[in-house]
Amino acid sequence: MDILYFAWVRERIGLPRERVDSDAATVAELVDELRAREDRYAVAFEDLGALRVAIDQELSDFDAPIAGAREIAFFPPMTGG
């Protein structure tokens, strides 16, 4: 699946998107896998309360299942308008 990062999440991880093969069942499990990779991921995902997640471009939750998802995006709370 494709993982996308926006705003300061993108800056902390250092890239806007990447392809990840994962058997994670939920967003939270995927986050745990990413955190274990490198410090920059651990730093970006330190406080999930400060993050939002979208699955296939729909806002979702960290306990949501991700089976079959094509695109998962992580970003801070939105500031439109």
Binding site: F6, A7, W8, A54, L59, A73, F75, P76, P77, M78, T79, G80, G81
Partner: peptide
Amino acid sequence: LKSRAPFWKKEITKDSADW
């Protein structure tokens, strides 16, 4: 659209760049 549309703003001055 303030809190449900995926936009993020960054303010850039001579000395800083803050989300």
